[in-house]
Write a protein that binds this DNA or RNA. Structure first.
Lengths: 185, 185
DNA sequence: TTCCTTTGTAAACGCTTGTTGACTTTGTGG
DNA sequence: CCACAAAGTCAACAAGCGTTTACAAAGGAA
C-alpha cells in the first residue's frame, strides 16, 4: 500500500455526503467534492466510477430507531419524534436523511432509496410495536408526517420559532401515536 | 401586433410550469421549455430575461382554500385534506405546489416562496377558522403534515396503494383537525 | 539500487448549458 | 403598395460540467 487509498476514499465519501446534503445531487459538482477532500477530481472516477456511483455509495441510510421496549405504549409516538429531533439537533451536517430528502426531489435513485427505507425500516418498526395488521398503510402515514417535518425544517427552513421542539414533540408525537394505534377506516 | 406575443408568453409559462414540476429547476433546460412551446429558446431571454426570471414568473401560487363556513367545526381538517386530494387527483400536471415542492429542495427562491404561502395563505386560513391565538405554530404544524403528504405522493412516489385517499382523508384530516383546534403545550 | 505496482496529478476532451447579437419573417398603418 | 416595428429564428458564444488519457511521484520487493 502507498499513501492510503482507503483513507482518501473515505474522505471523498464524507465530502460527498456533506455536499449532497447542502446542495442536492445536481447542484453538487465532482470538482467541489474533490476539492473539499483535497484531492484531484479524477480520483472520483478511479475509485467509484463516476458521480452517480459515488452518490449511491455515499447514501446508505440507517434510521437507527431506538429501543422502544421500555417505553409506555401511549408514549411511543412521542418517543419517535423526540428521537428524530435529537438526531437532527446534533449538527451532523452530513445527516443522510437530509441528503436523501433534498436529493429525492429530482433524483429517482434517491426517491427509490427512501421508499426502501420506508418499506423496510419503518415497516419493521411499525410491525414490532403495533402488530402486523395494515403495516404498510400505517408506515406510509407516519412517513408523510415525519418526512414533512424534516422537509419543513431542512428544506423550507422553518425554525424553532415556527415549530418549537417541545410543541412539535407533543403534537406530532400524538399524530404518530394515532397513526400507529388508531383504528383505520 | 403581429403573431401574438402575449400567447407565446403564456405558452412559455405553461411549458415552464410543466417542466419545472416534472424535473425541478436545475434539471429543466430552457431548450426543453422552448421546444414544448414550439418556439426558439432565445425568446425566453427576450420575454423574461432568463431562466431564473421565467421561473419566478411561472410560479405564483394560490392554494385556493375552499369556503369553510358551511363545514361543521369538527370536520374542517377533513375538508381541507379532501380539498388537496381533489386538487391533486385532477391531472393538473402543472400544479404549482408540486413545482414548488420539487424545486425548493435545491432552490432558495422556491423555498422562500413556500414560506410566504405558509405565512400568508395558511396563516390566514388558520386565523379565520381557529382564531388568532398561536396562528404561526398551528400553521407550521399543518404545513409539516400537508407538505409531507404532497412530498410522499409526488416526490417519493407513494401510490394510492400505500395511502388510500379515503384512509388519508380520515386519518390526516384528523391530524389537521388536532393542529387547528387542540390545545398546544 | 532497480523495478514495478499503487496512488495521485495535469491537462485536455466532448458535451451541454444559458445567453447573446445579427438576421429574417410577418402583419399592419400610412 | 410599402416601409417599419414587432415577432421569431439562427448560429455562435463562453462557461461549466463529468470524464478520460497520459504522465509523475511514492514506496515496498527483488
Amino acid at each position: 500500500m502507498a499513501r492510503d487509498a482507503q483513507a482518501t476514499r473515505e474522505r471523498l465519501v464524507a465530502s460527498a455526503r456533506k455536499a449532497f446534503s447542502e446542495r442536492g445531487f445536481e447542484r453538487t459538482t465532482v470538482r467541489e467534492i474533490a476539492a473539499e477532500a483535497g484531492v484531484n477530481p479524477a480520483l472520483i472516477n478511479r475509485y467509484f466510477g463516476g458521480k452517480e456511483q459515488l452518490f449511491a455509495e455515499a447514501v446508505s441510510i440507517d434510521l437507527a430507531f431506538p429501543d422502544l421496549s421500555g417505553v409506555a405504549r401511549d408514549r411511543i409516538g412521542h418517543a419517535l419524534v423526540e428521537h428524530f429531533f435529537r438526531r437532527w439537533e446534533g449538527d451532523a451536517q452530513d445527516d443522510l436523511l437530509r441528503v436523501l430528502i433534498r436529493t429525492a426531489a429530482t433524483n429517482e435513485e434517491a426517491a427509490s432509496r427512501i421508499r426502501g427505507v420506508l418499506a423496510e425500516q419503518v415497516g419493521m418498526m411499525v410491525a414490532r410495536v403495533a402488530g402486523p395488521a395494515r403495516v404498510c398503510e400505517r408506515a406510509s402515514l407516519i412517513a408523510t408526517q415525519i418526512l414533512g417535518l424534516a422537509y419543513a425544517r431542512y428544506v423550507i427552513g422553518l425554525s424553532d420559532g415556527d415549530v418549537a421542539p417541545e410543541v412539535a414533540i407533543a403534537m406530532i408525537g400524538g399524530t404518530v401515536q394515532r397513526y400507529l394505534f388508531d383504528e383505520l377506516p
